[in-house]
Design a protein around this nucleic acid. Structure first.
Length: 362
DNA sequence: AACTCGGGGAG
DNA sequence: CTCCCAGAGTT
């Protein structure tokens, strides 16, 4: 580790932060619950994306008790479109724990807060420093990028081992009295000045301390291994509508991708499988009902971080009435779809097939 | 240590 | 297109 003037670095950074920090809704007070919610939402998610979700979430669930008492389905609906849905299911599990074991007060010790579901090393550090002023690191992608440049650390930041390096480095840099502002200042610098590409070194408040800048290698840092490309999966989705104009929904399993989200029935597509193969798979879903019409209405392409879904969407009209036969099934009118949480991929089906072929024809 | 888990905005 | 974001849980 190269040497810098740490007190001077802290002062330059904190002065810049206090003059330039963004006006964000979770900075209006130091409510540990609100800080917590914001940090969960901000995991792998940009500030601009989070802001409207945060405002709506806090207005609906202002306290840990409000969130603890809410229906999981309603909570998922508020999170709809934000992604990584286990974050909010873990958050609700954790606030139940806070309500029961801590009388609704977010704990302020490393051990207790790390024991809460969904609170990892970063989020624990963020809450403890921002809400409680404790001098603990909160190492996220911004912090690793900034510190890798300040100290020209060439460790691959995708490796777990590198996290320990930056955690220790960060620990050595935190001022004891203003840890929350300091941690936020490093992140704010990373988000607005020390950006991944084309960092704005000319306006950087700590340029004088930056070894990467001195050596002209800021664009080479941080070192980060490329991740492997996502695999492609082919699916057939079907919007089944019965003689009452009701459509059939499935709820996904409790674990795995998009857990507990609702969707139109999906079937893995084989090579060149079309309507005939789909009707065969639909057999036990439809039982004795007759298919009056089947028509392909849409092709949806949806990209996850590790999977690409290519979905052929079909509209199937039945003679006879559909009925839900299990808890993970529902038969609803199209306007009732608003009450169920859907992933973005199936929102595309609602916005396409349902609104174009069902709502417009009424 | 490697993999899973969403979605969108910037370049 | 590619990258990557105020990461955590599971295996």
């Amino acid at each position: 580790m190269k040497n810098i003037n740490i007190p001077q670095f802290q002062e330059n950074l904190l002065t810049w932060y206090r003059d330039n920090k963004r006006d964000l809704p979770w900075r209006e007070d130091q409510d540990p619950y609100k800080i917590w919610v914001s940090e969960i939402m901000l995991q792998q998610t940009r500030v601009d994306t989070v802001i409207p979700y945060f405002n709506r979430f806090i207005s609906l669930f202002p306290t840990p008790e409000d969130l603890a008492e809410a229906d999981e389905e309603d909570v998922l609906k508020v999170w709809e479109g934000l992604g990584y849905y286990s974050r909010v299911r873990n958050l609700q599990q954790a606030v139940k724990e806070v309500s029961q074991s801590y009388d609704g007060n977010v704990p302020d010790t490393e051990k207790e807060i790390r024991a809460l579901k969904g609170v990892g090393p970063y989020t624990a550090g963020a809450i403890l420093s921002i809400a409680y002023g404790k001098a603990v690191p909160a190492v996220d992608g911004n912090v690793m990028r900034v510190l890798s440049r300040i100290f020209t650390v060439y460790d691959d930041i995708t490796k777990p081992q590198a996290k320990k390096t930056f955690d220790q480095l960060s620990r050595d840099m935190i001022p004891a009295d203003v840890a929350g502002d300091y941690n936020q200042a490093v992140m704010e610098l990373g988000a607005t000045v020390c950006t991944p590409k084309n960092p704005h070194c000319l306006t950087c408040p700590v340029e004088a301390h930056c070894h990467a800048r001195k050596e002209g290698v800021q664009s080479l840092l941080p070192v980060k291994a490329k991740k492997k490309p996502p695999r492609t999966e082919h699916w057939q989705a079907v919007v089944i509508i019965d003689e009452n104009g009701h459509v059939f929904l499935n709820r996904r399993p409790d674990t795995g991708l998009l857990a507990k989200m609702w969707e139109f029935p999906m079937y893995r597509a084989e090579e060149n499988s079309g309507e005939d193969a789909l009707l065969e798979k639909l057999g036990n879903q439809l039982e004795l009902k007759n298919v009056k019409r089947i028509e392909q209405t849409q092709e949806v392409r949806h990209i996850f971080s590790h999977i690409v879904w290519e979905i052929d969407v079909y509209l199937v009209q039945l003679t006879g009435a559909l009925n839900a036969t299990a808890e993970d099934e529902q038969v609803v009118s199209p306007d009732e779809l608003n009450y169920y949480p859907f992933s973005v991929s199936h929102q595309k089906i609602i916005d396409g097939t349902v609104s174009d072929y069902l709502l417009s024809s009424i």
